[in-house]
């Protein structure tokens, strides 16, 4: 097997939120290595710190302690331009809460990152339409988010994440608002991107169905990594989980 390249390295990351006198320890020292081109699922119950970890990896928030390396570069050392470039080109985000802009149409939402990247209007529109087609929203591109269902909004968010062909896609519960079928389609799409284009997929979930497509699963509990499992080890522990749930 060829040597695996590390694309994301998380080193002793802690995050503490101060809420008045109370301190919320969302992350209590996370160490994690993510390889180029793998499909990684982060599992954990609600409030375990998945979204917080994503924000750290994506350079959207700063850790209280510890470091995040992308391509072996400490992202806390990046200047404003580099950070913007990272967010714009290197990483595609699919947020738990979609975060699409309500005043823009589906198409405008998808082309926004391309505009930041300096793409010409026609080229961006063409690519935006392609991406919306890809997520099955080709005919709805002129609609504003409020005229779309939750699942459709989620798919706009997925299309937007693909806008600048990112090397990493951070997907925070991408199927949370989708029904069984569209959910599976979305996962299949991510899976295909991973397999065919070598995109690194990092996705958070508490949906066990998403696990069998993952190369590895990271179990997070209470702000710590509990265990990391490869896919072949997975069936065993999944069996036990299945029993526990029953």
């Amino acid at each position: 097997m060829e040597e695996k390249q590390i694309i994301v390295r998380v080193e002793g990351v802690k995050k503490t939120f101060k809420m008045g006198k109370q301190h919320v320890h969302a992350l209590r020292g996370v160490n994690l290595e993510i390889y180029t081109g793998e499909y990684l699922s982060i599992m954990g119950s609600s409030g375990s710190g998945k979204t917080t970890l994503f924000n750290m990896i994506g350079g959207l928030d700063k850790p209280t302690e510890g470091k995040v390396f992308i391509d072996e570069v400490d992202i806390s050392q990046l200047d404003a331009y580099e950070l913007a470039w990272l967010r714009n080109r290197k990483i595609g985000y699919i947020f738990q809460t979609f975060n699409i802009i309500p005043t823009l149409t589906a198409l405008e939402n998808v082309t926004l990152p391309m505009t930041f990247a300096g793409m010409h209007h026609e080229a961006a529109t063409e690519k935006g339409l392609e991406l919306l087609d890809l997520v099955g929203l080709g005919t709805r591109h002129q609609h504003k988010p409020l005229e779309l269902s939750g699942g459709q909004q989620q798919r706009v968010a997925i299309a937007r994440a693909l806008a600048n062909d990112p090397a990493i896609i951070l997907a925070d519960e991408p199927t949370g608002n989708l029904d069984q079928r569209t959910g599976e389609e979305a996962i299949e799409l991510l899976r295909t991107l991973c397999r065919e284009r070598g995109v690194t997929i990092i996705t958070a979930t508490h949906d066990y169905k998403m696990l069998n497509v993952s190369d590895r699963v990271v179990w997070v509990k209470d702000g710590r990594v509990e265990k990391v499992e490869k896919r072949d080890e997975l069936s065993i522990s999944l069996g036990t989980i299945g029993e526990k749930e029953r």
Partner: peptide, 28 residues
Amino acid sequence: SRTGFFTHDERHRIGFPWSKSFDFAVQN
């Protein structure tokens, strides 16, 4: 660049054209 992460060359510039900014502001 300082971090060796990328260069500030043309291909990697982040921007938003003035015409787009203006359209966006008017639309807002």
